[in-house]
Design a protein around this nucleic acid. Structure first.
Length: 600
DNA sequence: TGACTCAGCGCG
DNA sequence: AAAGCGCGCTGAGTCA
């Protein structure tokens, strides 16, 4: 039974069917119309899924006339990588796991009970890096520290989708929530696509940077020569020829013996001392950091055939930001930026948003003065021009202090000026902080809601309210309340900024997909799944390769680079309108096109 | 030996 | 100078 040709399905629910079949696993697909009614149901062998999806996306199943379906599946890392490995990409999806996580907690949902009861959907993301390990964990370690996975079978998916549909329809603002869920799910697709494509990485350049700074790669696992020499320099200056510089305890003792009066070995504290050992020590620490975090070992492990493939975890941070698991995608040091390098005859188009978070705050709070300070220019300089603060540096400290809840030091002194000049924006974050201090929850612009404080937090507050509470009890409770207030203060800003970035990414992805393939351009490898029976997949079109909170990098054929840049700009403008309508807030980009992802 | 915490530092 | 939000990763150190 298939869908009627005159009405292509609006959505297709995907899931596994019970029992390992004789000829291998089978997949069920249920077609739904716009009202969510079932209009068709088929089943097919797992191997046949990519071709089937391709047909639906490109023609036979309704790909024409703008009627590609929304694919509904349990978990994007489970379903999408094999499709990408077979050269099949999809336009839209609804990720049941990501959606569940948002709906079960959102203040906008008026009837969350049924969703919350379906607790097998409260799962950590699948570890896309090591599905085999996760499976092994299940066998050996069931019940102890095991990360539960969501159900992948068709009936469970249909039931959960029905619960989610009800929750959305009865929400206090379904439109807002739908926007958030579409963006979140699109983010899931982007994460899988970027992992498949990988960041083009120049291993020779990376090795050159390491060799320049640390000395040539040592044979076996020893430390490189320049680092050893630097360590000797430090030990000589400390007059302690044996001390292990990598051990904070022993280093601290050695520093004290040399008459350097510090309480820790962190670099901001060390900088306060003038001792001749300090400068080489700080250099040594920098070298040690580079070697251990992004040295040759990292290169061997994470870069393969010229591609760096970090594991992104969409929705991995409570605020809605992405996290990363393995590969350190969130912390590629600036030192290594020159190693990001486009393929031959390709370009990297890099763009980041200047001051995304304060702009999101201005937009969501409707603070016209703040919006105006940043319109068409650097927001921090705008604050200086408006006479709010004296220098750009002060502006930055004040704005960060306002969003993070600083109360002391320079930031604490500057924040009141913002409160005076931007009352709407400051009222929004101050209210969020107050809600958090009281133990309440707060929500982003599109309705992602913060987690309530933990049981331990509640216990502290109760203890402080007892008749026999000590001063220490009260102090602990006050401190915990303040911590949570700063968390909720930042949550609304960071979370709304993350929503803008997701909308940007989702829109950009579709714009890039609509660009033509360039006949003359060499191919770029965009998928090579280890488990794929098929070979690598190639592209001749611009595609996303990196995303980090407020920054994207697109890999584009040289002659398409300008179009890719325009797509990035257009997507940013579109994201602003989608979230904030006609609010007078812009999101200006720093954008560059080059062989390398370096901005001047 | 593995599982844990902590200090320290990279990113936004 | 340090502080005030969110992360992940490494190596040292500790415990069993």
């Amino acid at each position: 039974m298939t869908s009627a040709p005159d009405q292509p399905p609006a959505a297709c629910v995907l899931g596994t069917l019970p029992g390992p079949g004789f000829e291998g696993r089978r997949i069920g697909i249920v077609d739904l119309d716009r009202e969510g009614r079932e209009i068709g149901r088929i089943d097919l062998a797992e191997d046949a899924l990519p071709d089937h999806v391709r047909d639906r996306e490109t023609g036979a199943g309704g790909g024409q006339n703008g009627s590609r379906p929304r694919w509904i599946f349990s978990d994007t890392p489970k379903w999408y990588p094999p499709l990408l490995a077979a050269g099949v990409s999809i336009e839209r999806c609804h990720d049941l796991r990501l959606t569940h996580a948002i709906l079960a907690r959102s203040e906008l949902v008026t009837a969350p009970e049924a969703l919350r009861a379906a607790s097998d959907w409260d799962a950590a993301p699948a570890d896309a890096a090591a599905p085999e390990q996760a499976a092994a964990l299940f066998d050996v370690d069931a019940g102890r520290g095991f990360i539960p996975q969501v159900p992948h079978d068709l009936e469970a998916a249909l039931a959960e989708y029905a619960r989610q549909t009800t929750a959305i329809e009865t929400a206090s603002d379904p439109g807002r929530l739908r926007l958030l869920l579409a963006a979140e799910s699109a983010g899931g697709l982007v994460a899988a696509e970027m992992r498949a494509a990988g960041v083009p990485w120049d291993e020779v350049e990376h090795d050159r940077i390491l060799s320049d700074l640390l000395g040539p790669r040592p044979i076996r696992d020893g430390k490189p020569a320049k680092m050893l020499a630097k360590a000797e320099e430090v030990r000589a200056a400390l007059d302690d020829p044996r001390v292990n510089l990598d051990s904070p305890n022993r280093l601290l003792a050695a520093l004290r013996n040399a008459g350097i009066n510090v309480a820790s070995t962190s670099k901001w504290e060390l900088r306060t001392s003038e001792h001749p050992a300090i400068e080489p020590l700080l250099e040594y620490k920098k070298m040690a950091r580079l070697l251990s975090a992004n040295g040759w070992h990292w290169l061997d492990e994470w870069v393969d055939e010229g591609r760096y493939r970090p594991v992104y975890v969409p929705g991995g941070v409570v605020t809605g930001r992405w996290a990363a698991s393995g590969g350190g995608a969130l912390q590629i040091p600036r030192q290594l930026r020159p190693a990001l390098r486009a393929d031959e005859e390709w370009r990297l188009v890099s763009a980041d948003v200047a001051q995304l978070e304060p702009r999101a705050l201005a937009a969501m709070s409707g603070d016209r003065a703040m919006a105006e300070a940043g319109f068409g220019r650097d927001l921090y300089s705008g604050l200086v021009d408006a006479g709010v603060v004296a220098t750009r540096q002060e502006a930055k400290i004040a704005v960060l202090g306002a969003m993070y809840g600083s109360t002391t030091g320079e930031a604490g002194a500057l924040v009141p000026r913002l409160r005076q000049n931007f009352p709407a924006a400051m009222h929004l974050v101050d209210s969020a902080a107050e809600a958090g201090r009281q133990g309440g929850v707060v929500s982003t612009w599109l309705g992602r809601t913060s987690p309530p404080p933990s049981e331990g937090w509640q216990r502290l507050q109760r203890a402080a309210n007892r008749f026999d509470a000590t001063g220490a009890d009260e102090q602990r409770a006050r401190r915990a309340a303040g911590d949570h207030g700063r968390f909720t203060r930042n949550f609304v800003v960071q979370g709304t900024a993350a929503e803008w970035a997701l909308a940007w990414l989702a829109d950009l992805r579709l714009r890039l997909e609509r660009l033509p393939e360039i006949d003359g351009a060499p191919e770029s490898r965009v998928a090579a799944h280890p488990a794929a029976a098929s070979g690598p997949v190639f592209s001749r079109r611009a595609h996303l390769v990196f995303f980090l909170h407020d920054e994207v990098i697109v890999h584009a054929p040289a002659e398409q680079a300008d179009q890719a840049a325009e797509a990035i700009r257009a997507a940013a403008a579109s994201a602003g309108r989608l979230l904030f309508g006609d609010a007078p807030v812009d999101f200006p980009l720093d954008l560059s096109i080059g062989e390398r992802a370096i901005k001047d």
